[in-house]
Computed example of a mutant assay.
Amino acid sequence: MINRITDRFPEHQIVESEAENLYIIDHKKDDGGKVEIHSEPQISNAVQLYNPNKTPIYFDGFPDNAFQISPGAHLKQCECIVFPQTCMDDDWILVIETKYSANIETAFDEEIDYPNGMIDQVANTVAYLRDQNIIPKDKMVNALVSFPNLIDDFSAFFFSGTPSVEDVLIEHKIKIRASNVATIRNRRNIYIGELRQFGTKA
């Protein structure tokens, strides 16, 4: 998979890591910067990937307007993709979409409609990467939709006015969850929505 990404999108800056804690931040909200991954907590709130077995991963933080769909028109994309460095057929793939809402009222304001927009960005990005033969057509993809600034659990609210988790799974082959955290078990398993401690590698 890494070869397909670098061949098709040579301008993307792929980051390798096997840190135990990973923090993904979209700096566009701060200063127009990039989507980045760090091994130490940052000043800004982040999506945290807990990686207790130090599974080596690749991270592609998508630059602005990364995917052109026609001259002058670009896909409304999500933030990034993360996947194990083994690049095996049965490895997990994770795409992440974030919105830095200041409070839960704004996050779920019906006029702003962040949840539906976030689901659309995830689905559109995965569909585009399938069309480009980056992700196999029948491959199940994990997706995390996140509000990093919100401390309280917002997962119960997220899908109340959107397609259900099951709808997204059936229509797009995407297992989507609303959370600010996920735990990498190994190259085959990733758990979204909770921090979990595991003892040994598998």
Rank of each mutant, 00 (worst) to 15 (best):
N3H: 12
N3T: 09
R4M: 10
R4S: 15
T6R: 05
T6E: 04
D7I: 06
R8Q: 12
E11D: 14
Q13M: 06
V15I: 15
V15G: 02
E18D: 14
E18Y: 07
A19S: 15
A19T: 05
N21S: 11
N21W: 11
L22D: 10
I24R: 07
I24S: 00
I25K: 09
K28S: 13
K28R: 14
K29A: 12
D31Q: 06
G33T: 08
K34I: 02
E36Q: 11
S39A: 14
I43D: 10
I43M: 10
I43G: 03
V47W: 09
Q48M: 13
L49Y: 02
N51Q: 03
N51K: 08
K54T: 09
T55F: 01
T55C: 05
P56R: 14
I57K: 01
I57Q: 01
G61V: 07
A66F: 08
Q68T: 07
G72R: 05
A73K: 13
Q77C: 00
C78E: 01
E79L: 02
E79C: 07
C80Q: 02
C80W: 03
I81Y: 03
V82R: 01
C87V: 00
C87M: 04
D91C: 05
V95Y: 01
E97R: 04
E97A: 05
T98A: 09
K99H: 04
S101D: 02
N103W: 03
I104N: 01
T106L: 12
A107R: 00
D109G: 05
I112Q: 10
N116F: 06
N116G: 05
I119G: 00
N124E: 14
N124L: 11
V126T: 12
A127H: 05
L129V: 06
R130W: 04
R130M: 05
R130V: 08
D131C: 05
D131H: 07
Q132V: 08
Q132R: 13
Q132E: 15
N133A: 12
N133F: 10
I134P: 04
K137N: 13
D138W: 00
D138V: 08
K139V: 01
K139W: 03
M140V: 11
V141A: 07
A143F: 01
S146F: 04
S146G: 08
P148G: 03
L150M: 07
D152K: 13
S160A: 14
S160I: 14
T162V: 11
T162L: 13
E166G: 03
E166Y: 13
E166F: 11
L169C: 09
L169V: 01
E171S: 14
E171D: 15
H172K: 15
K173Q: 15
I174Q: 02
I174F: 01
R177W: 09
R177N: 12
A178G: 09
A182G: 12
T183N: 05
I184R: 10
I184H: 04
I184W: 11
R185D: 07
R185F: 10
N186K: 06
N186T: 12
Y191R: 13
I192R: 08
G193S: 12
R196C: 06
R196P: 02
F198K: 01
F198W: 14
T200E: 12
K201L: 15
